[in-house]
Simulated scan of single mutants.
Amino acid sequence: MTTRRTVLGGGLAILATARSLHAEPADQFRVESSEGAIVSAHYAANGTAKRPSVLVLHGARGVELRQRAYERYADALTAAGIDAYLVRYYSPVDEQAMAPTSTREARLAHEDARFGVWAERVSAVASAVLARADSSGRLGLLGFSLGGFVAAATAARDDRVAALAVLYGGMPDQIATSVKHLPPLLELHGDADRNVSIARGEALVRLAKTVGAPAELVTYPGKPHGFDFAENDPASADAVARVIGFFRERLPAA
């Protein structure tokens, strides 16, 4: 079902709260891997109680290009009592292959070959986060563009993922035919997206429903790829509000 409910007032309030509470990462969370360490910026919610966590997965250009946009979600998550981990899932090999100097064709070929590896790297971070003393044992994934595809691929293979939010992403083609499980899903997508067609988001929602998962698609009329990166656009506030509301519902505190 395509939905476009109006919650902009609440979204603006959440975004304003996130701005006022902007927090620096509590620490750099490091997980060793055979392809190099996976380093995440950990944004911790206040308090000493055990907390749910969300792993935030960046797009194809890495963290730096849109870091402030990712941090807006991290700030809003922590304000809601949920820890956020901004995960740098690229290995040194990926950093080189996905550099802006590479051709688009080369980057796409590299992506197709790496989804399984990236899913394993994200699952390794999930294992380490769930083992922390401050973890409630509830974990979600939030992925943007390429990170949305990685999040979907990870959630299909790792049943510890309790909630999946994808912005303008989908399921990798080579994984879709073997998917047997997905957690509850929220997909947000602009219908003017020329980078990742809204058809990919629609297909992911259909797939989730086929395997029995609750799934919702929210379409933003006239909005392009990365529409929520614009800090003062009401659609950005709306997207943040929906994502936070989704994780509040699906990742209740212990």
Rank of each mutant, 00 (worst) to 15 (best):
R160K: 04
P172S: 04
R104Y: 15
G147P: 06
L65E: 09
T101P: 03
S91G: 05
I198H: 06
E187G: 03
T2F: 07
V150Y: 00
N46V: 03
Y73E: 08
D193W: 10
E187Q: 12
S34Q: 08
D112G: 14
G143L: 03
Y70G: 10
R88C: 04
L21G: 11
A26H: 14
I38H: 12
R248C: 09
G10W: 13
G116R: 01
P252W: 06
G170I: 01
A176V: 10
Y73K: 03
S136M: 06
D94S: 15
D228T: 08
A253V: 15
E202T: 10
D134Q: 09
T2W: 11
L21M: 09
G47K: 10
E120W: 08
D83R: 01
G201L: 13
A97D: 08
A80P: 12
A69Y: 15
A133G: 06
A49C: 08
A153Q: 11
E95Q: 13
L186K: 00
G9Q: 14
V117K: 05
A156N: 06
T6I: 14
A18R: 12
L146T: 13
L204T: 01
F29W: 09
L77M: 11
V205Q: 03
G226S: 14
H189T: 09
K223S: 09
E231F: 10
A235Q: 07
A99P: 03
D75E: 11
R104L: 15
S145W: 02
E105L: 13
F149R: 00
E120Q: 15
S91W: 03
R250M: 15
L142D: 05
S197C: 03
V150I: 12
T210Y: 05
A74D: 08
L204M: 12
E32T: 09
L142R: 04
G169W: 00
R51H: 14
G201F: 14
A80W: 10
F115M: 09
R68C: 02
V56C: 11
V166L: 03
A203F: 00
G81Q: 05
E105T: 13
D83K: 00
Y90R: 11
Q67P: 10
A74S: 07
Y85S: 06
V243C: 05
E111S: 12
V56D: 10
A165T: 02
V87C: 14
P221R: 13
A13K: 15
P52T: 07
A192Q: 08
G147N: 05
F227T: 06
V205R: 07
R68K: 07
Y43R: 02
G222R: 13
Q96T: 15
L141Q: 02
A74I: 05
G116Q: 10
E32L: 14
L12E: 11
L204E: 04
M1C: 12
L21H: 07
A235L: 13
A192D: 10
A239N: 10
H225T: 07
F115K: 04
A215E: 01
E111I: 12
E64H: 04
V125L: 08
A106K: 12
V117W: 07
G212I: 08
P183H: 06
V87M: 15
G212T: 09
V179Y: 00
L142A: 09
V93H: 06
R121S: 05
A208I: 04
H42W: 15
L164K: 03
D173F: 07
A199V: 05
D233F: 02
L15I: 07
D134T: 05
G222E: 08
R206W: 02
A152K: 01
E71T: 15
G143V: 02
V129Y: 02
V87G: 02
S123D: 01
T78V: 14
S91H: 09
V150T: 04
